[in-house]
Design a protein around this nucleic acid. Structure first.
Length: 425
RNA sequence: GGAGGAUUAGCCUAAUUGGUAAGGCAGCGGUCUUGAAAACCGCCGGGUUUACACCCUUGGGGGUUCGAGUCCCUCAUCCUCCGCCA
């Protein structure tokens, strides 16, 4: 959500900044609505002032036995006018809200110009693409050969895009999740949370999934609840409506959750196998920070996510997304892409690390009270995957395959796999 | 699912038969002090306004009334008990 005062004072600048991400808006109508709204508020306040005074006077006169008929009829008349004005105000409020809620965050000045993937800025890469002297299998072929991955039965029980991990595959998935949770809690001081996997409408609006992405989510109609597309939703909404003492900041959360995305209509090469599924597992990082720290913290968060890949010894790169590619709530976003060597090799997105600045905080009304007692300020909220397992598993299977068709268990995962070093057919 | 009770500002607690939210703690600023504590003064939810001032805020939303923390309806959350249940 945007600060209407900021828009009022910097209308042109606001439009320009949204234009950077391909959003064409004209805020003139919004500003007119806002001006009108403030007029109505002042009008309502004056009527209420008179009504309050008259009712008070009624009480006094009644006590002393004087006639109150005239006052009573005046208050009744004001009441009728008020009712109308209040209804106008509600309608205006709703229109302003409908205007603001679908608008994405404005890009930070440091976000690169551009609208498509090719405008993303390369930041760094790590490691080297692994070399092989045999014909590589892709992750689907490896999964089938080792009998650890079953797409067909998954679609039997739910539908396409719902994979089933089997045997050592399920073990590997669980090992990855545990490894990542341990890393972020023990080494980086995040507090582990186990949250519900469903969230209500207010929560979804708070983090920005609603209204724009409502139909990309699975919904439980009867209770108006949504399956999480990411545990960012629950971690951020833990503090919805709160004023946090400054001394409690920063707050650093990590959570595992399955993530559910309908991604309606997305089929083709990029959806093959694990590249895009309707359900996947993810370990998510969320941080609540003071504004002056948030960009330094974004670098830190990104580093925390990268460390997962370094410990797994997987080749990866970091790109900074251009304005047009930013997630809805982000002002700046880095993607981490891991190298999957089969099929000639391709980069797969395994993490997005964003600074939403005050955008989510304003939507979810999360503030902090400065120790000096000054007015509550919106916190800055950052989130990052650390990491999503499905595409990570693609890179892992393809990178750690052997000529014999078995799979080497990455050293950091062995303690989570009962010491197993090799998965064989 | 059923019955009863509860919800007042960051926290805690008041408010005669309906008369327009009283205090305390914590925090911040100041006076005093070598410094601190204590004491005293001020600030300490949100909105409109250059300002003065005014308005709103007793979990949310409605209703009755000249007037609602108080009465009625409804929803949410919490507590106690009953039922069901992994």
């Amino acid at each position: 959500m945007h600060d209407i005062k900021y828009i009022r004072a910097h209308a042109e600048e606001f439009e320009q900044k949204l234009k950077r991400r391909g959003e064409d808006v004209n805020v003139e109508e919004l500003i007119n609505l806002d001006t009108h709204k403030r007029e109505i508020i002042q009008n309502i306040d004056r009527m209420r002032e008179r009504r309050n005074a008259a009712s008070k006077e009624t009480g006094v006169r009644k006590k002393s036995g004087q006639n109150i008929d005239e006052l009573r009829s005046e208050v009744l008349e004001i009441g009728a006018k008020l009712k109308e004005a209040e209804s106008n105000l509600r309608e205006l409020d709703e229109r302003i809200n409908n205007w603001l809620l679908p608008l994405p965050n404005i890009p930070s000045d440091q976000t690169p110009e551009g609208l498509t993937e090719k405008d993303n800025e390369f930041i760094r890469d790590w490691g080297e693409p692994p070399e092989f002297d045999f014909e590589l299998l892709d992750h689907l072929a490896i999964g089938e050969r080792l009998d650890i991955l079953d797409f067909k039965r998954g679609s039997n029980i739910t539908g396409s895009g719902f994979p089933v991990w089997s045997g050592a595959g399920a073990g590997l998935e669980r090992a990855l999740i545990n490894f990542m949770l341990d890393l972020h809690t023990n080494e980086y001081g995040y507090r582990e949370m186990m949250t519900p996997f469903l969230a209500n409408r207010n929560s979804m609006e708070g983090t920005g999934q609603i209204p724009k992405l409502e139909y990309d989510m699975y919904r439980i109609d009867k209770d108006d609840l949504f399956l999480l597309p990411t545990s960012e939703v629950t971690l951020v909404n833990l503090h919805r409506g709160e004023i946090i003492p400054e001394t409690d900041l920063p707050i650093k959360y990590v959570a595992y959750s399955p993530c559910f995305r309908r991604e309606a209509g997305a089929y083709g090469r990029t959806t093959r196998g694990f590249l895009r599924t309707h359900q996947f597992n993810k370990v998510e990082l969320v941080r609540f920070e003071k504004p002056e720290n948030s960009y330094q913290v974004l670098d830190e968060l990104l580093g925390n996510a990268e460390e997962v890949l370094r410990k797994l010894d997987l080749h990866y790169r970091v790109v900074k997304l251009c304005a047009g590619e930013l997630p809805f709530a982000a002002a700046v976003c880095y993607d981490i892409e891991v190298w999957a060597p089969a099929d000639g090799g391709r980069w797969l997105e395994v993490s997005s690390c964003s600074n939403t600045e005050a955008f989510q905080a304003r939507r979810a009304n999360i503030r902090y009270r400065p120790v000096d007692g000054s007015k509550p300020q919106f916190v800055n909220i950052l989130n990052g995957s650390g990491l999503a397992t499905s595409r990570l598993m693609v890179a892992l299977l393809e990178t750690y395959q052997t000529q014999e068709g078995s799979l080497i268990v990455p050293p950091v995962l062995r303690s989570y796999m009962g010491g197993k070093t090799l998965v064989t057919a």
